[in-house]
Simulated scan of single mutants.
Amino acid sequence: MAFSIKSFFAADKTDAVKFENTDIQYQSGFSDIWNIAKSYMTTKRLHPAPVVEVPVQPITATSLSFSNEDQLFRLGHSTILIRLDGDYILLDPVFSQRASPVQWAGPKRFHQSPISIEQLPPIKAVIISHDHYDHLDKSAITELSDKAEHFVTPEKVGDYLIEWGVEPSKVSQLSWWQELTIGELTLAATPAQHFSGRGLRDRDTTLWASWVIKGTNSNLFFSGDGGYFSGFKEIGERYGPFDITMIETGAYNEMWSQIHMMPEQSLQAHIDLNGSEFESSVLMPIHNGTFDLALHDWFEPLEWISDLGEQANVSVITPVFGEPVNVASPQKTQAWWREMLSNDEWILQSQ
């Protein structure tokens, strides 16, 4: 098993240095926990999870060889496989069946990954945004330890990887605004409005980050998790505009909007990151479609952000899991989730 119950309850880092957000110091008390619990008990949803198979386009070594272009492949939730300049980069690899401290309980996957870790090509760099279980998967890290050349994390998150057996020389830990160059690849850890913790007593003892990923011809932004904050404009001023922004759009609720953006905020973040050139950039919503982590219907984030993008003249792409996206010329994608609902269900949902 990839997790120890004892470590979850016993890990005590209460004396460790605590990281803080730049805009809002997020705190949650008993009343917040009670309100959230009450909402989970009383909210009725039509579609908390898919009832038919989620479409997945398998990825194989042969399909990866079809093109030499810079490409993105969404594998699930916030896990993205990227090819830049012929090298492969893997973002927040989560391949376990549950986004949970244990594999016998917790949010279960709606679909399988389009490619297994064993089938992955050699990975130049694995990039981690923060230590939450739906972004940092111990089992995946241990399987990737020999397949990946570099592991790049926010400050202190890399300590987990080393503890799990990754060679320390492979691990780079960055603070906000620090950069790392690997060949032609430039990685920059940029701020995010979030929090961290894998146990009961290690809150905010590791850093969280968004990432700028820049190759020879492509400039990408990966939000990780976070609420909307003024930092998006500064990131855009320093590193933008971006060809594609991969921005969290899912697991949101007004009760925790300080740490997870509502869809209209995800759209605004994309605009902030690209300034006046936002119409020439593409937004790919992530953090949705794989796990049930909130109170909205499973497909709502995809529908909501697609509608907002159309209204604001922002190009939003929603590829099927495993579908290749060419960075230089991303094609228009289909609303594949609509095909999973009957006409009666769709009419009822739209009312």
Rank of each mutant, 00 (worst) to 15 (best):
M1A: 08
S4W: 04
S7P: 02
S7H: 01
F8N: 00
F9H: 05
D12K: 03
K13N: 14
K13P: 00
K18H: 13
K18M: 09
N21R: 13
T22K: 15
T22G: 10
D23Y: 05
I24R: 12
G29E: 00
F30G: 08
F30C: 12
I36R: 12
I36F: 07
A37K: 13
K38S: 12
Y40G: 12
K44P: 08
R45T: 06
H47K: 06
P48I: 03
P48G: 11
V52D: 13
E53A: 14
P58D: 06
I59T: 12
A61Y: 01
A61I: 08
T62D: 11
L64E: 11
L64G: 08
F66H: 08
F66M: 03
L72R: 10
R74H: 15
L75F: 05
I80R: 04
D92L: 03
V94F: 02
R98I: 10
S100V: 08
P101E: 00
G106C: 05
I115L: 08
S116Y: 05
E118L: 06
A125M: 04
A125E: 04
I128V: 13
D134G: 15
L136V: 10
L136A: 02
I141S: 03
L144H: 04
K147Y: 07
A148W: 02
A148H: 02
F151C: 08
V152R: 02
V152I: 15
P154L: 11
E155N: 11
K156R: 14
V157K: 02
V157G: 01
D159L: 09
Y160K: 09
L161K: 02
E163P: 06
V166P: 03
S169E: 14
K170D: 05
L174G: 04
L174N: 07
L174P: 02
L174I: 04
L174C: 07
S175V: 04
G183S: 07
G183T: 07
L185P: 00
A189N: 06
A192V: 07
H194I: 10
H194T: 14
S196C: 03
R198W: 01
R198N: 01
R201H: 12
D204L: 03
A209M: 08
G215W: 10
G224M: 09
D225S: 14
G227V: 10
K233R: 09
E237K: 05
R238A: 11
Y239D: 08
D243A: 12
I244K: 10
M246T: 03
I247C: 06
Y252P: 05
N253P: 02
M255S: 15
I259D: 00
Q265N: 06
S266F: 04
Q268S: 15
A269T: 06
D272S: 14
L273Y: 11
N274K: 05
V282F: 05
V282K: 07
V282G: 03
L283G: 13
M284Y: 06
P285K: 06
I286K: 02
N288D: 07
N288I: 07
G289D: 10
F291E: 13
D292Q: 14
H296A: 09
S306V: 02
D307H: 04
V316F: 01
I317W: 09
G322K: 06
P324A: 07
P324T: 11
V325L: 09
V325G: 15
V325N: 06
V325K: 05
A328T: 05
S329R: 01
Q331K: 03
Q331G: 13
K332W: 05
K332S: 12
Q334S: 08
W336G: 01
W336K: 06
M340H: 09
S342H: 04
D344K: 14
W346E: 11
I347T: 15
